[in-house]
Protein backbone atom coordinates (compact mmCIF):
# COMPACT_ATOMS: atom_id res chain seq x y z
CA UNK A 1 0.00 0.00 0.00
CA UNK A 2 1.35 3.42 -0.84
CA UNK A 3 0.01 6.90 -0.39
CA UNK A 4 0.86 9.86 -2.58
CA UNK A 5 0.90 13.49 -1.50
CA UNK A 6 1.13 16.18 -4.12
CA UNK A 7 3.33 15.41 -7.10
CA UNK A 8 6.44 13.96 -5.51
CA UNK A 9 6.06 12.75 -1.94
CA UNK A 10 5.09 9.10 -1.62
CA UNK A 11 4.72 6.99 1.49
CA UNK A 12 4.33 3.33 2.20
CA UNK A 13 2.21 2.52 5.25
CA UNK A 14 5.23 2.25 7.55
CA UNK A 15 6.66 5.57 6.43
CA UNK A 16 3.27 7.17 6.83
CA UNK A 17 2.94 5.76 10.35
CA UNK A 18 6.40 6.91 11.43
CA UNK A 19 6.03 10.27 9.72
CA UNK A 20 2.67 10.87 11.40
CA UNK A 21 4.02 9.77 14.76
CA UNK A 22 7.11 11.94 14.32
CA UNK A 23 5.04 14.96 13.33
CA UNK A 24 2.63 14.49 16.22
CA UNK A 25 5.42 13.97 18.78
CA UNK A 26 7.54 16.86 17.52
CA UNK A 27 4.68 19.32 17.19
CA UNK A 28 3.27 18.29 20.58
CA UNK A 29 6.69 18.82 22.10
CA UNK A 30 6.99 22.24 20.47
CA UNK A 31 3.46 23.15 21.57
CA UNK A 32 4.12 22.05 25.14
CA UNK A 33 7.41 23.94 25.36
CA UNK A 34 5.88 27.06 23.83
CA UNK A 35 3.03 26.87 26.35
CA UNK A 36 5.48 26.39 29.22
CA UNK A 37 7.59 29.32 28.02
CA UNK A 38 4.51 31.50 27.98
CA UNK A 39 3.01 30.19 31.22
CA UNK A 40 6.00 30.05 33.57
CA UNK A 41 6.95 33.30 35.25
CA UNK A 42 10.33 32.09 36.43
CA UNK A 43 9.37 31.99 40.11
CA UNK A 44 12.52 30.89 41.99
CA UNK A 45 12.68 27.43 43.55
CA UNK A 46 10.33 27.10 46.52
CA UNK A 47 11.03 24.03 48.59
CA UNK A 48 8.29 22.58 50.74
CA UNK A 49 9.47 20.08 53.36
CA UNK A 50 7.33 17.56 55.21
CA UNK A 51 8.84 15.40 57.94
CA UNK A 52 7.21 12.42 59.56
CA UNK A 53 8.39 10.09 62.30
CA UNK A 54 8.26 6.47 61.20
CA UNK A 55 7.46 4.27 64.15
CA UNK A 56 7.32 1.19 61.92
CA UNK A 57 11.04 1.42 61.10
CA UNK A 58 13.91 0.41 63.39
CA UNK A 59 15.98 3.11 65.11
CA UNK A 60 14.80 6.67 65.44
CA UNK A 61 13.90 7.37 61.82
CA UNK A 62 12.19 10.33 60.18
CA UNK A 63 10.98 10.39 56.60
CA UNK A 64 11.53 13.67 54.75
CA UNK A 65 9.70 14.76 51.63
CA UNK A 66 10.97 17.77 49.69
CA UNK A 67 8.76 19.22 46.95
CA UNK A 68 9.71 22.11 44.70
CA UNK A 69 6.66 24.38 44.29
CA UNK A 70 8.61 27.03 42.36
CA UNK A 71 9.11 27.32 38.63
CA UNK A 72 12.83 26.69 38.51
CA UNK A 73 14.91 23.70 39.52
CA UNK A 74 16.80 23.98 42.81
CA UNK A 75 20.35 22.65 42.72
CA UNK A 76 22.68 21.68 45.56
CA UNK A 77 19.93 21.89 48.15
CA UNK A 78 21.08 21.47 51.75
CA UNK A 79 18.51 21.08 54.47
CA UNK A 80 19.61 21.13 58.11
CA UNK A 81 17.29 19.53 60.65
CA UNK A 82 17.52 19.87 64.42
CA UNK A 83 15.94 17.45 66.83
CA UNK A 84 14.39 19.09 69.89
CA UNK A 85 13.79 16.99 72.99
CA UNK A 86 12.13 18.59 75.98
CA UNK A 87 12.68 21.98 74.42
CA UNK A 88 16.42 21.56 73.85
CA UNK A 89 18.31 20.95 70.64
CA UNK A 90 19.91 17.57 71.12
CA UNK A 91 20.97 16.41 67.69
CA UNK A 92 21.06 17.64 64.13
CA UNK A 93 21.48 16.26 60.65
CA UNK A 94 21.81 17.56 57.11
CA UNK A 95 20.26 16.25 53.92
CA UNK A 96 21.90 17.18 50.61
CA UNK A 97 20.04 16.86 47.32
CA UNK A 98 21.76 17.54 43.99
CA UNK A 99 18.63 18.57 42.10
CA UNK A 100 15.01 19.24 42.96
CA UNK A 101 13.23 19.71 39.61
CA UNK A 102 10.03 21.72 39.31
CA UNK A 103 7.07 19.98 40.99
CA UNK A 104 9.20 16.96 41.77
CA UNK A 105 9.16 15.18 45.10
CA UNK A 106 12.41 13.91 46.60
CA UNK A 107 12.33 11.55 49.55
CA UNK A 108 15.07 11.25 52.18
CA UNK A 109 15.58 9.77 55.60
CA UNK A 110 17.23 10.97 58.77
CA UNK A 111 18.15 8.60 61.60
CA UNK A 112 19.12 9.88 65.03
CA UNK A 113 21.24 8.14 67.65
CA UNK A 114 19.06 9.16 70.55
CA UNK A 115 16.03 7.31 71.82
CA UNK A 116 12.69 8.80 70.97
CA UNK A 117 10.95 10.72 73.75
CA UNK A 118 7.43 11.97 74.01
CA UNK A 119 7.03 15.49 72.65
CA UNK A 120 10.06 15.36 70.31
CA UNK A 121 10.02 17.71 67.38
CA UNK A 122 12.10 17.98 64.24
CA UNK A 123 12.76 21.53 63.09
CA UNK A 124 14.09 22.58 59.72
CA UNK A 125 16.73 25.01 60.90
CA UNK A 126 18.18 26.10 57.58
CA UNK A 127 17.72 25.52 53.90
CA UNK A 128 20.12 26.52 51.16
CA UNK A 129 20.06 25.91 47.42
CA UNK A 130 21.30 27.34 44.17
CA UNK A 131 19.47 28.39 41.06
CA UNK A 132 20.91 26.64 38.00
Amino acid sequence: MSIKFGNKVHFNWLQLTVFSLGAILSLSMIGYLAYQSFKLDGIPPKLEVVSRYRADLPDYTWRLTVTNRGEETATNANLKFTLYQKGKATESGTVSISYVPIQSEQVGWIIFDRERQKGDSLVLSSITYLQP
Binding site: Q15, V18, F19, G22, I24, L25, S26, M29
Partner: peptide, 11 residues
Protein backbone atom coordinates in the same frame (compact mmCIF):
# COMPACT_ATOMS: atom_id res chain seq x y z
CA UNK B 1 9.08 14.38 5.65
CA UNK B 2 12.40 12.64 6.34
CA UNK B 3 13.26 15.14 9.04
CA UNK B 4 9.98 14.52 10.86
CA UNK B 5 10.52 10.77 10.64
CA UNK B 6 13.99 11.16 12.15
CA UNK B 7 12.74 13.42 14.91
CA UNK B 8 9.99 10.93 15.71
CA UNK B 9 12.41 8.00 15.77
CA UNK B 10 14.82 10.05 17.89
CA UNK B 11 12.11 10.74 20.45
Amino acid sequence: KDSFEELGLGI
